[in-house]
Lab assay of single mutants.
Amino acid sequence: RTAFSSEQLARLKREFNENRYLTERRRQQLSSELGLNEAQIKIWFQNKRA
């Protein structure tokens, strides 16, 4: 289980509010910017949509 920092969570929530689905390219960008792997971001979005 991933423990996200408050900064990472704030960024993910802001991104989710703008778009509930990420393109592969956007997921790669977020992964690089947040220091998370793409799978972690993908799962976070899946869980948030559920």
Score class of each variant (00 low, 15 high):
residue 15 E to S: 04
residue 38 E to M: 06
residue 27 R to S: 15
residue 42 K to A: 15
residue 22 L to R: 01
residue 6 S to L: 09
residue 30 L to E: 00
residue 15 E to L: 04
residue 43 I to F: 09
residue 46 Q to Y: 10
residue 32 S to E: 14
residue 30 L to W: 00
residue 33 E to K: 03
residue 43 I to T: 10
residue 44 W to D: 01
residue 43 I to K: 11
residue 20 R to H: 11
residue 28 Q to A: 10
residue 10 A to S: 08
residue 37 N to Y: 06
residue 16 F to K: 01
residue 4 F to G: 02
residue 49 R to H: 08
residue 36 L to E: 01
residue 20 R to S: 13
residue 18 E to N: 09
residue 20 R to A: 12
residue 26 R to C: 05
residue 27 R to P: 02
residue 50 A to D: 09
residue 8 Q to G: 01
residue 14 R to Y: 10
residue 48 K to R: 13
residue 9 L to F: 04
residue 13 K to S: 13
residue 47 N to Q: 13
residue 45 F to Y: 05
residue 3 A to E: 14
residue 17 N to E: 14
residue 6 S to D: 14
residue 22 L to H: 01
residue 43 I to L: 13
residue 20 R to E: 10
residue 24 E to A: 14
residue 42 K to P: 01
residue 4 F to R: 02
residue 16 F to V: 02
residue 24 E to C: 10
residue 1 R to K: 14
residue 34 L to Y: 02
residue 7 E to N: 06
residue 39 A to T: 11
residue 4 F to D: 03
residue 18 E to T: 08
residue 20 R to V: 06
residue 36 L to M: 06
residue 49 R to C: 10
residue 44 W to A: 02
residue 42 K to W: 13
residue 3 A to D: 13
residue 35 G to Q: 07
residue 18 E to S: 07
residue 25 R to A: 14
residue 30 L to G: 00
residue 16 F to R: 02
residue 47 N to H: 11
residue 34 L to N: 00
residue 24 E to P: 14
residue 11 R to P: 00
residue 37 N to G: 11
residue 20 R to Y: 06
residue 40 Q to I: 15
residue 50 A to E: 11
residue 3 A to Q: 13
residue 14 R to C: 13
residue 5 S to T: 15
residue 3 A to W: 13
residue 15 E to A: 11
residue 22 L to V: 05
residue 21 Y to D: 08
residue 30 L to S: 00
residue 41 I to Q: 00
residue 36 L to I: 10
residue 11 R to L: 06
residue 4 F to Y: 07
residue 34 L to P: 00
residue 23 T to M: 02
residue 18 E to H: 08
residue 45 F to R: 00
residue 2 T to H: 13
residue 21 Y to A: 04
residue 40 Q to K: 06
residue 40 Q to A: 14
residue 12 L to V: 01
residue 10 A to G: 06
residue 48 K to F: 09
residue 6 S to K: 14
residue 49 R to P: 03
residue 1 R to I: 12
residue 3 A to T: 11
residue 2 T to L: 13
residue 34 L to C: 02
residue 7 E to H: 07
residue 22 L to S: 02
residue 47 N to V: 11
residue 25 R to P: 08
residue 5 S to D: 07
residue 35 G to D: 07
residue 45 F to L: 03
residue 36 L to H: 01
residue 11 R to I: 12
residue 1 R to H: 13
residue 24 E to Y: 07
residue 1 R to P: 14
residue 5 S to M: 03
residue 14 R to S: 10
residue 37 N to P: 15
residue 30 L to F: 01
residue 7 E to Y: 07
residue 43 I to R: 12
residue 17 N to W: 08
residue 32 S to D: 12
residue 35 G to C: 06
residue 46 Q to I: 10
residue 27 R to V: 15
residue 37 N to W: 05
residue 14 R to M: 12
residue 17 N to G: 09
residue 16 F to Q: 02
residue 17 N to P: 01
residue 1 R to W: 08
residue 20 R to D: 07
residue 48 K to I: 08
residue 22 L to Q: 02
residue 1 R to N: 14
residue 19 N to H: 09
residue 19 N to G: 05
residue 13 K to P: 00
residue 28 Q to K: 14
residue 36 L to V: 10
residue 12 L to H: 00
residue 3 A to V: 12
residue 35 G to Y: 04
residue 37 N to S: 15
residue 12 L to F: 01
residue 24 E to T: 13
residue 3 A to Y: 14
residue 48 K to N: 10
residue 18 E to P: 00
residue 26 R to G: 05
residue 10 A to D: 11
residue 46 Q to M: 09
residue 7 E to W: 09
residue 25 R to F: 10
residue 18 E to Y: 06
residue 5 S to Q: 04
residue 4 F to H: 03
residue 37 N to D: 15
residue 31 S to Y: 03
residue 45 F to D: 01
residue 21 Y to P: 04
residue 27 R to W: 10
residue 29 Q to D: 08
residue 45 F to N: 00
residue 2 T to K: 10
residue 1 R to V: 13
residue 20 R to P: 15
residue 12 L to E: 00
residue 26 R to F: 04
residue 31 S to N: 01
residue 36 L to S: 02
residue 49 R to N: 13
residue 18 E to F: 07
residue 40 Q to S: 11
residue 48 K to V: 08
residue 12 L to S: 00
residue 40 Q to T: 12
residue 8 Q to H: 04
residue 11 R to V: 12
residue 10 A to Q: 10
residue 23 T to A: 04
residue 24 E to K: 15
residue 44 W to G: 01
residue 13 K to M: 15
residue 42 K to V: 15
residue 15 E to G: 02
residue 14 R to K: 13
residue 12 L to K: 00
residue 41 I to R: 00
